[in-house]
Amino acid sequence: MKGKAPVEGRPLEDVELARRAREGDDAAYEDLVKRYGQIAFRVAWLVTRDRGEAEDAAQEAFVKAYYALPRFRPDSPFRPWLLKIVANEARNRARSTRRRQGLALRAAAVSDGDAAPSPETAALAVADRETLIAALNALPPPDREVIGYRFLLGLSESETADVLGVRQGTAKSRLSRAMARLRAVLEEPA
């Protein structure tokens, strides 16, 4: 590996890794890919709902981000900058393939060997979880996308706005409308 080791084992900040990558340190960029590979893939999957498309989109986005590093502002966070590129790439692919009917969201299976669920998860009954996921799957893709970014992936309001490519106020109102539609689906008779 060409990159320099982190000081005293402490992980390097994103900005420092991006700076090193921009200067040709491939190992630094590889660290960033490892750090954000999972969330990038999940963002792409939320948009495409196709594993292959999501993988291609995330991969392409990382390559594009690499070449766009000279335009990355070191005074802004790296994660939303990257995820924006990922979401764009995924949307372009979803649009070009016209693949709208992807895989539905599913609850993870809970087995006896799994770690104890968080108090919040435990508080949400199994039936409620299934109802909520079914309601999410019934939403139009843009609603599912904004709810997915904010709650399923845990992005901040600001990050959600960045990834959607809109202002924070717009993202908030979009999320609010999506939640209202989710609530309307929940109100529908079974």
Partner: peptide, 17 residues
Amino acid sequence: AALSSLDIEWPSTPALH
């Protein structure tokens, strides 16, 4: 909060790096 607590079955992440 309920949505945040959902445990979604995400597809396994490929070795992108």
